[in-house]
Computed example of a mutant assay.
Amino acid sequence: MENRMGLKEQITEDMKAAMRAKETAKLGAIRLITAAIKQKEVDERIELGDAHVLAIIEKMIKQRKDSISQFEAGGRQDLADIEKAELLILSAYMPAGLTDAEIQAELAAAVAASGASGPQDMGKVMAILKPKLAGRADMTAVSGLVKAALSKA
């Protein structure tokens, strides 16, 4: 009975399951995701697909990572632990990450496809890579790899 449900539907089902199981921490994190999705849908008057939902979750993950480092620097391990728990729940919705070799292969293909010849073509290469790698690789790191690859070109 494996009917492929969308990410939004999966999140809604997980929220119901967390309610029934009285998992308050998980429920809280999932409610944050659904609130962010609804906010975006209302603001832009659109129905979000999986790619948009992943982008929202990716942004939330980045916020948690920033908060964790701030809380740990400030000696607030209690708050850092809460953020870490939310980070684990959010990360569960992300697709499996790509290996370095897979990222390099995508990068090489994007450079070839765009005809990039130097750093001035970075935007073209990133435009090809972003939809393919979003949610599956750290785009800041990918950006650095593109810059390095194009500097050699």
Rank of each mutant, 00 (worst) to 15 (best):
A134I: 04
K8A: 14
K38I: 02
V111Y: 03
E13P: 00
A141T: 06
I37C: 04
A85M: 15
A153Y: 11
M19F: 11
I56L: 15
G49Y: 06
D66I: 09
E106N: 12
D66Q: 14
A29N: 04
M1Y: 07
P95E: 13
G115M: 08
T99W: 01
K132H: 00
Q120L: 05
I61D: 02
K65T: 15
V146E: 01
A148D: 14
A18F: 08
A51R: 13
Q10W: 08
P119E: 15
M15L: 08
D100R: 11
G74V: 05
L90Q: 01
Q70D: 14
G49S: 09
Q39H: 07
M19D: 08
A55K: 15
G97R: 15
T12M: 04
E58G: 11
L88V: 10
D121E: 11
L7R: 01
T24G: 02
E106L: 10
A108K: 14
M15P: 00
E47T: 14
K147D: 06
D66P: 03
L54C: 10
N3S: 06
A113I: 01
L133F: 02
R4C: 12
A110I: 07
V146R: 00
I61L: 15
I11K: 06
L133Y: 04
A21L: 12
E9F: 10
G135N: 05
K38P: 00
E58V: 03
L27G: 01
A105L: 04
A148R: 09
I103V: 15
L27K: 02
L90N: 00
R64T: 02
E72A: 11
E23S: 09
A51T: 15
D14A: 15
A80D: 11
M122D: 05
S91T: 11
D66G: 09
V142E: 00
V146N: 00
M60G: 08
P119R: 14
I11N: 02
G75P: 10
A134V: 05
Q70F: 12
A35Y: 05
V146M: 03
A116V: 04
T24M: 07
M15Q: 01
E72L: 14
S151Q: 11
L32C: 00
V53K: 08
A141R: 09
E106V: 03
S69H: 15
L7F: 02
I56H: 01
E13H: 06
E58Y: 11
G75H: 09
I68N: 00
T140G: 12
P131A: 12
P131H: 06
K132I: 05
A25K: 10
A29P: 04
L54R: 10
G123W: 07
G28V: 00
E86Y: 00
E106A: 13
M60Y: 06
